[in-house]
Amino acid sequence: MKYLKSDSEKCIGCGTCMNVCSRLYFKEENPERSAIRVFTQEGSRKIVVCNQKCRLCVQECPVQALTVAKTGVVVLNKNLCVGCLACVAVCPIGAMQYFPGEKSPFKCVACGACAKECPADALEIVAQEE
């Protein structure tokens, strides 16, 4: 299984990852369209991104638009998705995202684009035995 491993201790809060992610998938730099979210909470840095492990969203999806790919990454098939956002509700860490007014939610697919550009080496793609 591969996933995006994050280290909030190293994170400097520059927001590069969010810009990279939203630019790659939505053609604009907009943290609200990013599958990774970085923010500061009570003085400490938080990184929210799918760890590909719990798969509650996969279990909840009524149309099986969310599945686990061979790589172990949870992926959304937008052609099947009916936009109910149940996956957003069940995600225990808030890593399933949606942009208000748009049909389908989105999530991290562990592509690694953000990790490549992170100036603080706070992100890396890790492969792990299931």
């Binding site: 998705c81 009916v82 936009g83 109910c84 956002l85 149940a86 957003v88 509700a89 069940v90 949606y98 208000p100 007014g101 049909k103």
Partner: peptide, 24 residues
């Protein structure tokens, strides 16, 4: 071809927001 826009809603954002709140 089902999706959340087929009703031609006046404001999908509100439906999503209220729906998500109830889901949670």
């Amino acid at each position: 071809g089902l999706n959340s826009l087929l009703n031609d809603p006046a404001d999908l954002k509100v439906i999503q927001e209220r729906g998500l709140k109830l889901h949670k």
